[in-house]
Write a protein that binds this DNA or RNA. Structure first.
Lengths: 137, 137
DNA sequence: ATCGCGAGCGTTATACTATAACAAAACAAG
DNA sequence: CTTGTTTTGTTATAGTATAACGCTCGCGAT
């Protein structure tokens, strides 16, 4: 048993690899693939996909990053307050990913979860389309 | 210009490859990867991933199949009446995929789409968790 | 101190998913 | 028949993700 983390669930500080990967995610408004990220963090000493994937896994577990299934990519979390569901609007033209905190979108899911005999572990909600800027409006 | 399809948008009949792939999807309650399907339709003469992906692309365009992003897999459509959004409940234990036609789940998305300056092209809504059977209830 | 253990990291190799590019065949129109 | 178009077949390759193994480092026990 480790002797640190004395109070019980103090979140361990991010390691070098996690910091580098999270930094790369935060610098981008679009989702990045693990290999994109790898290209960007080679300077920081990461050399293989495994290292990037391990860092991403930890970041996602902590809620500091999200996986975008429909892009096979990742984004930094911009709404740390949301502990449960997260939703994303993805522009198919410019690639920008907006994290949606809209409770109107999420509440129905919670409601459905309560009514159905289905034990929800995770929800993926990804809306693809044109953002206002790209729609030319 | 083709002379067939005389009335304008008569849906061309499915080709051999599409039929074989759709058959494989319909036989399964879980999502199948393109390579899974390929193994199953080798008898029908398909030999390369490209053929399976092309068949899947056509089936999805017609609404006869759906892609499950979070599994990199595909399922046959079981609710042909729904033209717009489709949602899925995916059991993480047995892999069964249930297509959700629940309007209560989908209506909020339509509502959001109307209110937001975002031109929706496609919505991915995938709920992962334990189905009633696997939850032991 | 030093031994042994467990956690995490680095590295290599490989599996899995998807598409590009071109060849061959099918088919309608002239 | 021949020509242009569309579909299908085939090969090769790109892109995404994980398995497996060995090293090192920190810690507690002796």
């Amino acid at each position: 048993m480790p002797t640190l983390t004395p109070t019980g669930d103090e979140p361990a500080p991010l390691g070098r690899n996690e910091q580098a990967v999270l930094g790369a995610l935060r610098r981008s408004r679009a989702a990045r693939s693990a290999y994109d990220i790898l290209d960007e963090v080679r300077d920081a000493g990461l050399k293989a996909p495994t290292q990037v994937y391990r860092a991403l896994e930890k970041l996602v577990k902590r809620g500091l990053a999200h996986r975008i299934e429909s892009l096979n990519g990742f984004v930094a979390c911009r709404h740390p307050q949301d502990q449960g569901f997260a939703a994303f609007a993805i522009c198919t033209r410019c690639g920008a990913v907006r994290e949606l905190a809209d409770e109107a979108l999420i509440a129905p899911l919670r409601h459905w979860a309560g009514a159905e005999p289905f034990a929800i572990e995770h929800v993926t909600l990804e809306v693809r389309g044109l953002c206002p800027a790209c729609a030319g409006g």
